[in-house]
């Protein structure tokens, strides 16, 4: 199972913050498709622009930004935690 965490900015769409998804062996991109299926097209429209993730959301797998892993192709395994976190850094 993959544990998924959403930020509060997602709750108007997802209504929940933490879920578990059967996505072992799938990629982050495939996990996104499962989530878009579950929460409808609104989440897809807000998260994706021209096939790419919008710049203001970062996705972390076990605390590592997927940009530094394999992007949307990053593979997931049982027990992984995927967190969506709005970009706020520094200041």
């Amino acid at each position: 199972m993959i544990r998924v965490k959403f930020p509060s900015a997602f709750t108007s769409i997802t209504k929940e913050r933490r879920i578990e998804v059967e996505a072992d062996g799938k990629t982050v991109g495939e996990l996104l498709d499962i989530l878009f299926e579950r929460y409808g097209s609104t989440l897809r429209e807000r998260l994706m622009k021209d096939g790419e993730l919008v710049p203001f959301i970062n996705i972390f797998v076990n605390g590592e930004d997927i940009r530094y892993l394999n992007g949307l192709q990053t593979e997931l395994k049982d027990g992984d935690e995927v967190a969506f976190i709005p970009a706020v850094a520094g200041g």
């Binding site: 509060s8 900015a9 997602f10 807000r46 203001f56 709005p86 706020v88």
Partner: peptide, 20 residues
């Protein structure tokens, strides 16, 4: 980014486009 408005509250990310 998208101009959506929110109340005077401890919020930081837009729930429409996730912009600051």
């Amino acid at each position: 980014v998208c101009g959506r408005e929110f109340p005077n509250a401890p919020l930081y990310a837009c729930d429409n486009c996730f912009g600051p």
